[in-house]
Each structure stands twice: as structure tokens, then as C-alpha cells.
Design a protein around this nucleic acid. Structure first.
Lengths: 238, 238
DNA sequence: ATGCGTTTCAAACAAATGTTTTAATCACAG
DNA sequence: CTGTGATTAAAACATTTGTTTGAAACGCAT
């Protein structure tokens, strides 16, 4: 079902443990999940975790890598294609936003085994991600380098080319944050939306509408800022 | 130091416990903090939590209310003033964004006792908030109703008046999310920024620049969307 | 000073957790 | 069939956790 580097050549028991771990770590958090529950979910013996992974923490680290490695290959391919394209920066930006939103909210996620409950809970990967933001573990360093930095740098590249004039790194970062903030907000703060609008997550998030909106909103924002830069430069020359 | 409704008429021990609880719950999460550590930090006996709060969970619930109630009075006053103003919606939007950013990143927070470490950790309130997003507790229902819904509704009001034409609730929500996403992103995903840019939080976040950027970016986004609505309507009439 | 309700204290309790141990079982090459 | 290494199984272990208990100390009106 899933051709995964970390996953492919694992013994059956180890695979089952990993899948169960994603599910339960996601549903309850690291400390609230007991190794007993994971083993029960995976239908293996209590000692299996220590045998196959060393201990609970190393299992969690594997889970973290597993989650972020999900779709990395496809995603990276698309990414270099977008960044190296000679299309207009606005087109590239559109491709970028559409791609990220797709991988964040697409069916690939809502159908994966890591998302046990689509109704009243954040799906496992996002819960785990939020946990890391609240209290980063040691693994986060690697995760950022391997999986997050490439995505962010790509966006910075696109933006740099968009503002063809000399533009500060600080401004690029602000713009990138504006974009990422818009993309991630609906998943990350989903429990609030749920309570505000009695909504169920994957029903209420219209991926297509979100893509379009984030792109149009962003385009308006960027154009305005670019224009302001332009008038500032002009004024500077007078 | 802090004239707080929940805080004012508390016995000394209870206050100390509450402050210690904010600090340690924030630094470690609910399960990772032991009542023993809180009591040690507060320099009170082990049994004090159960005596003053009932149990660990009720202490945590109090902490949650305490955090969100912080500055609520001032904030609410400003809010009604902004919403009921007869200024141009763009001006009101600016006031709204500036106010929220101020209360999210302002000195009032970075100086408060709830933010023990400004260097390598998210400050307590935001860590606790993220925990709630990852795994909501029962208290979140009340928190959303009392503290979050008013803020969001105010923004929706402003936006509704901005798009003077008939505009769908869905579009308003998308725009509101774009704004909130931009505002919250830097705090919430601070651990990533820290690792990407070796930055320390309160040094790297320039509140003034953030305010201005979010407003300008948002204004550009909203204007573009409004314009698109307008041409759509025109086309509809033809 | 006395008595009483409130608060603090040290010690103990019961429950649960991650891990280890040791033996049993399995896969399978020789 | 045999033997060897890998895997699984059940039980036990050591620790830590939140909570309770019952007595002591305190504040304070009478």
C-alpha cells in the first residue's frame, strides 16, 4: 500500500507497530500513550517495542520520520520542477501553493491509515506536528533540515525572483510566513473552527476553494507590497 | 502586579501554585509536569494542589482560564471601540490587526511571569495553546466561547462591512483565516523558525514590522478579492 | 488563654508505566 | 532431523505518579 523507504523492508511485526504507533501517538500524545496500548493495537507482545525499536522514544522518532517522509519523493520532484521552471514567478507561486495545499489537505492524507478519525480529531500527523511545536523533541532538528527547510527555501527562491529588485531577507521571510500561515492555519487550529462552527474537518475544508483563495489573497498581498517597494525606490531616487 | 479576576482574592499559596503551574505546564506539557515539581517551584507542600484546586486537572483548567483571561478586559474594550467605529472598514481592519498583534507579541507578554524562557522555548501561554490544539481538553469549549469567539466575530463583522456587497459566509471565513493565520504563524511555529534561522524568539520577531506587513499584505489580498467579486457581479448582470 | 476553622506538613498508598528477564517458539539451512 | 539464530511470549521489576490520610501549626474571634 505504501512504498516507503523506512517502511519497505521492515518485518511484519515492526510495520504493524509503526502504524499503530502513528495512530495512537497522534490521538493521545507521546506521554499519554502507553506501550501496552500500542502493542494491543498492533496485536503483538508487550516486549516487541523494545526488541524492534529499542525503546518508546526511538519508536516515536521513527514515527516522526515516517510521517514527514510520507510523499517526500513525489513532493520533492514537483518542487524542483516548479522552482526551476522559467514560467512567470506568479505562475510558479500558484503551482507552489496548489501543490502544498494538495499535499496538506488532499485525499492522500484523509485516506491514509494515519488518520483514524476524520470527524472529531485532528489527524495523527498534524497532532504530532503540533506536539513538536509545543515541546520540540531532539528529532525536530533533523526533521526541519530534511523535510521543512527545502520547502521553505523553495518558496523563498520564488519570492526572491518575484521581487526582482533588491529586497531584504526580512521582507522575504515575512511574505513566506504570510503564505505558510494561511496554508497551515485551517488544519492546525481546526479544534477552534470545530467549536466555532460545529464543523467536521474534512467536510468543512474545501481544498479547491482553499487553494484558490490562498493564491488570490497572496497575489493581492504580494502585488501591493511590490508596488510599495517600487514607489519607495522612486522616492529614494528623487 | 496583575489585577486578575480569577487571581485577585486568592490566598497566597494558591497564587504561587497557579503561577508555578503556568510556568511548568507551559514548559513541559500537562502529563510531563508532576505535581511535585509544581509544588517545589511554588515552595509549598505536596498536598497543597489537592487542597486548593481539587486535583491536577482542575489546576490545569484554572491555568487555561488564567492565561486567556489575561488582558481580556482591556482587549474587549478596544474591540467594541474598533467594531462600532464609523471609520472606513480598512481603518478598522488596521486597528484590529495592530491590536491583536500587539497583544500577541507585545511587551506585556514577554515581561509576564508566564514567560520564563525567552530564548529557546515557546512562552508558556502559546505552548499550552498548542497543546490544546493537538489534544483539546474539555475546558477548550469554554475557552473558545468566552475568549476566542468574540475576537473572531469582531473580525467577521469588519470584513462583512468591507465587502459591502452580499458575500458568502464561506468567503468571509477564508479571509478571516488568512488574517489569523498570518498573525499566529510566527509564534506558533517558532521552533521551526528557530531552527531555520538560528533565531531567538523575541529578538527575531519585530512586532512593529509584523503589524505593518500583515496589514499591507491583507489589504492587498482583500482588495484583490473584492475586485474579483465586483467583476463577477458585473458579468452576472450581463 | 481557649477553642475552632483553616491551612500546612510528612508519610504512606494504590495504581500504572517502561523495561528487563528468561523461557518458549519459529524459520530454515546443513 | 538437527541445531542455530531470530522472534515472540508471559511474568516480574523497579520507579514514578497523583492522591489521601491524620496530625500538627496557624490565625483569630471570643
Amino acid at each position: 500500500m505504501n512504498t516507503h523507504t523506512l517502511y519497505a523492508d521492515m518485518p511484519e511485526t515492526k510495520k504493524r507497530l509503526l502504524e499503530a504507533a502513528v495512530k495512537i501517538f497522534g490521538a493521545k500524545g507521546f506521554l499519554a500513550t502507553t506501550v501496552r496500548e500500542i502493542c494491543q493495537e498492533a496485536a503483538v507482545n508487550i516486549a516487541a517495542i523494545n526488541y524492534h525499536f529499542g525503546d518508546k522514544e526511538q519508536l516515536y522518532a521513527t514515527v516522526l520520520h515516517f510521517i514527514f517522509n510520507f510523499h517526500k519523493q513525489i513532493r520533492d520532484q514537483k518542487l524542483v520542477h516548479i522552482v526551476n521552471s522559467d514560467a512567470h514567478p506568479e505562475k510558479r507561486l500558484k503551482a507552489y501553493i496548489y501543490m502544498i495545499v494538495h499535499h496538506t489537505y488532499g485525499k492522500d492524507c484523509s485516506n491514509c491509515t494515519s488518520c483514524p478519525s476524520k470527524t472529531n480529531q485532528n489527524c495523527a500527523p498534524y497532532s504530532i506536528f503540533l506536539m513538536e511545536m509545543a515541546h520540540p523533541s531532539e528529532v525536530l532538528d533533523d526533521i526541519v533540515e530534511q523535510y521543512i527547510r527545502p520547502d521553505v527555501e523553495s518558496l523563498m527562491d520564488i519570492l526572491r525572483k518575484y521581487f526582482d529588485a533588491n529586497v531584504s531577507q526580512a521582507l522575504l521571510k515575512l511574505c513566506a510566513d504570510s503564505i505558510w500561515g494561511q496554508i497551515l492555519h485551517p488544519t492546525m487550529f481546526w479544534p477552534i473552527d470545530q467549536r466555532l462552527n460545529q464543523s467536521t474537518k474534512f467536510k468543512s475544508i474545501d481544498t479547491q476553494a482553499l487553494k484558490q483563495h490562498v493564491y488570490e489573497f497572496t497575489l493581492g498581498g504580494l502585488r501591493r507590497i511590490k508596488q510599495q517597494l517600487h514607489t519607495e525606490n522612486k522616492r529614494g531616487l528623487v
